[in-house]
Amino acid sequence: MDYPLRSTPRPFSLLLYPTMIYLNLFITFFKIGLFTFGGGYAMISLIQTEIVVNKQWIDAATFTDIVAISQMTPGPIGINSATYVGYTVTGNVWGSALATFAVCLPSFIIILLIALLYKQFKQNRWFNAALKGIKPVVVGLIASAAILLVTPDNFVDWKSWALFGGAFVATWWGKKSPITIIIVAGLLGLLLY
């Protein structure tokens, strides 16, 4: 498969050298693992800005499909998207394995360090202060993820907006599970399009 390049060529970009795709994949998912605070949805926005907007390895519609598949299958969304993106970018299992390993590696380093310094860490006021500053940023990150996914591919007509509204209401007021929402939306898609 060929490797999509950014619209403006950068001669020193690792992407110009196909063998370097693995290194690039590793660095990207390592960064995602290192900077995800605040759970799966915050990770969605990081993965999206790095992989869809920055590297352009996959388009927004494909990314939305990955999120849908992740919501319907067991396991954390971080692992699911690393595995999926690793596969689509390299076309083989090793890309998947590498991306998944890379997204978990920061956790290893940090959790093992914390386990060593357990007592000091538990009541570290400086660390908690930094986390307090990150919390409102995470709200913005998730909002951006939602906004950036409102693309012409994802929202083709008014029916898309009706589906969006219906899913929003059913999740927020109806307290329906993501799986139910996705299955019903899929069936409606089959009927409407």
């Binding site: 939305t64 849908a68 919501q71 898309s160 899913a167 993501p178 996705i182 019903v184 939306a185 899929g186």
Partner: peptide
């Protein structure tokens, strides 16, 4: 059909 629902999720 699923994509707009995911954005809502």
């Amino acid at each position: 059909g699923i994509r707009p629902a995911v954005v809502a999720l």
